[in-house]
Simulated assay, not measured.
Amino acid sequence: MKSRILTAAVALVLFSCATKTPAVTEAAPVAKAVELTPELAAGQSLYDNNCAKCHKLYEPKKFTHEEWKPILVRMQKKAKLDDTQMVSISNYINSQL
């Protein structure tokens, strides 16, 4: 009788201490990475270096194309960027949407 209780206690301890296997969940769809052309890489660099001076960088997908337009117009003045640089940044952001 004691051996059965002891065996049950050991089995219970081993079972409760065993590592739990993670539940199988559906994998989220993998976002297709866009290969950056030299022009897009330049836009990313401008975005990273100029926008991060004043605030955290937002992922391009955080906003829609329509939401980005006024943001970029407003930030162009603050960051003192010319139209060519803004086109480059806009192209980069749009390529990531």
Results as ranks from 00 to 15, higher is better:
T7A: 14
K20N: 10
A79E: 13
L40Y: 08
A23N: 09
L97P: 01
T19Y: 11
N49P: 00
K62Q: 08
S88A: 15
K80Q: 13
I5M: 08
L6V: 10
L97I: 07
K69T: 07
I5T: 11
A79F: 07
I93T: 05
V10P: 03
A18Q: 12
A8L: 15
T64P: 07
E67I: 03
K2M: 06
Q85I: 00
S90K: 13
H65P: 04
K61V: 03
A52F: 11
N49D: 14
F63P: 04
P22I: 09
K56V: 07
L12G: 12
E67V: 03
T7N: 03
D48I: 10
A8Y: 05
I89W: 08
I93A: 07
Y58T: 08
N94D: 09
P60G: 04
M1Y: 06
Q44P: 00
P22G: 06
K2E: 12
S95C: 04
K2H: 11
K61R: 09
K77W: 12
A28Y: 06
A33C: 00
K2P: 00
S90F: 01
L72G: 04
E66S: 14
C54W: 07
T21V: 14
D48N: 12
N49V: 06
K2N: 10
A41N: 08
A23G: 05
A52W: 09
E66C: 03
T25S: 13
A31T: 11
M86A: 07
L97H: 04
A79N: 12
T84K: 12
S88R: 09
T25C: 04
K69W: 00
L57G: 09
S16N: 10
C51K: 08
A27Y: 02
L36Y: 10
D82R: 07
C17Q: 15
K2C: 02
H55G: 02
K78C: 01
V24R: 10
N49Q: 15
E26Y: 08
Q44K: 15
K69I: 06
A52P: 00
S95N: 07
A28W: 04
L72F: 05
V24T: 12
S95D: 10
I93F: 11
M75I: 07
C54L: 06
Q44E: 14
D48E: 13
S88V: 00
E59A: 14
E59Y: 01
P60D: 04
K77M: 09
V87K: 14
S90A: 12
L72E: 02
K78W: 04
N50T: 03
V24P: 01
S95Y: 10
L36R: 08
K77I: 04
Y92K: 01
